[in-house]
Simulated assay, not measured.
Amino acid sequence: MHMTSAGHLLNEDRPEFARLLDEVLRTAHERPELALVGERLNAEQLRTMAINASVLLTTAASPEYDHYVKVRGELREASLAAHSAAAADVAADGPAGAGVSAMIAVLAPVLAGTAMVIFLLVGYILKMIEPQPAFAETIITTGWLFGALTAVALLCAAAGLLVTAVRNRATEVAADSGDTVPDEVSRAREAWRLALLERGIMPFLRDALADPGAAGLPVPHTPRAGRIPDLGYTRPDFTSPGPTSQGSRPGYTAPDFTSPDFGGPEREPE
Rank of each mutant, 00 (worst) to 15 (best):
P212Q: 00
E172G: 07
F238D: 07
L161C: 10
A158Q: 13
D211S: 04
A254C: 01
A28R: 12
A151T: 14
L154C: 13
V69K: 01
G200D: 10
L57D: 05
R249Y: 10
A50I: 03
L75A: 15
F257D: 00
R19E: 11
V117N: 03
E266C: 01
E23M: 06
W192M: 00
V24S: 09
N168M: 13
E39A: 09
A115M: 06
M116Y: 09
L145E: 07
V152R: 12
P212I: 00
Q246V: 11
A175H: 10
E268Y: 07
P229S: 07
A214M: 03
A105N: 15
A28C: 13
L107M: 14
D207C: 01
H2V: 09
T59N: 15
D176N: 15
A210E: 09
L80W: 05
L34T: 04
E172C: 04
N11P: 02
L161T: 10
A112N: 14
N42I: 04
A35W: 00
S62Y: 15
A195P: 04
D183W: 12
T164H: 07
V181F: 10
A157V: 06
V69S: 00
G7Q: 03
L21H: 01
A86I: 05
A159W: 14
N52Q: 11
E266I: 12
A158W: 08
A151S: 14
L56H: 11
F204T: 08
A254H: 14
G94R: 08
T171K: 15
